[in-house]
Design a binder for these strands. Structure first.
Lengths: 203, 203
DNA sequence: ACGTTTAGAGACCGATCGGTTGCAATGAGG
DNA sequence: CCTCATTGCAACCGATCGGTCTCTAAACGT
């Protein structure tokens, strides 16, 4: 599970990296399981198999830990996106929807909502979010959309779709409507296809 | 502020309704200000000018209180929507976006995210959300869209827009992009106008 | 006017939180 | 092998949480 773990005799750097990764993994899992405000350091440490004292050896505060967790989730998103390579727009859309609904993506929802009323979290999360969006948009602009297309238009429609799936994912917890969601995915696919074939211009 | 407050001698029913409304108002304001998990009963009671003992006279638990707050926010949304009456689709969209961004709407985001990992909250919030969406969709299907339009299509596009604005509102806390957001509103307006004039069919 | 019921106040409770501290174990360098 | 810095553990701290309990004040029924 936790990449980078070495058994037997380990160097200090390996030990440090190992427990750090275990703590970040446990943080992601804990927030995904029981939510941000219930994800106490005690619970996280218990899952990671690390004591509270050990945690503070690697992270200066709970805040630093959850920001590291958000970064890791972003890293996995980018990884998944990259491994998708070139694909039809319909596949891209389904992948995007899947990411919005993904277990670990809940970490982002939890932290974004918390960031609204927590200025320190907001300030530390903002640059991470900027980097994540920049990376993904750069990645998405390459394949599937020829250079003859207005990149601003592609960016506009693409982010709009992501926001739409995010909003859907949030309300779906309490109000799932599978038929409408499927129709939405299909309709979004048609719109994206129209954009890809250059049939949509910017107003 | 708190509608229904009567000064001087009041009947028990008036007293009860008054403090109840004050508590719900304070809950909405507190969650909007400092978030769901920081909105402690002490803080809420302080703002409402009611003691903790007084609170539990009217609400069996913190959960019951925040669900009542969500209901009140929904009521105000419907009220605003109703007072909008018949209006061009562009105005409807701007109104919808404004609602997604509204201070008090944060209560819904906070509770929806919390509901994902809190089964009791989820179960109590679900029927409220269903009623709210049903009411708004019923209201929106009336004006602006003639009866010759497929109501399912209007519902699909309409909810998709709402989800889009919701997703935008959530990420905007940490990653505001005013130019893209304005272009998004304009583009959504064009799409909605096309739907309203019957230029879009369901696939 | 008076006993009953309801609304409200505020001290109090056990549990849990994020974070600290002193100490034991481990690996690094000579 | 010995010394020292790093890593990890667990008891501990003050603060705060949701919720309860007891008591007073106000409105009600008669």
């Amino acid at each position: 599970m936790t990449a980078g773990v070495v058994t037997g005799r380990r160097t200090q750097a390996e030990r440090s990296a190992g427990t750090k990764a275990a703590l970040v993994d446990a943080t992601i899992e804990t927030i995904a399981d029981i939510g941000y405000h219930r994800a106490s350091l005690g619970e996280i440490c218990g899952r990671a198999g690390v004591s509270k004292g050990g945690l503070f050896r690697h992270f200066e505060s709970r805040l630093a830990l959850v920001v590291a967790a958000a970064e890791e989730v972003g890293r996995r998103h980018v990884e998944g996106f990259r491994s998708l390579g070139d694909a039809p727009v319909a596949d891209l859309l389904e992948f995007a929807r899947g990411r919005s609904r993904a277990r670990i993506n809940a970490v982002w929802f939890e932290l974004l909502v918390a960031a609204r009323t927590d200025s320190e979290l907001r300030e530390r999360l903002a640059p991470v979010a900027v980097r994540l969006y920049d990376t993904i948009e750069e990645l998405a602009l390459g394949p599937s959309f020829g250079p003859e297309l207005d990149p601003d238009l592609v960016r506009l429609v693409g982010t709009s779709m992501v926001h739409m799936f995010d909003g859907e994912a949030v309300i779906r917890v309490v109000l799932p409507r599978p038929e409408i969601e499927d129709a939405r995915l299909a309709g979004a696919g048609e719109l994206m296809a129209a954009v890809a074939r250059g049939a949509v211009s910017r107003g």
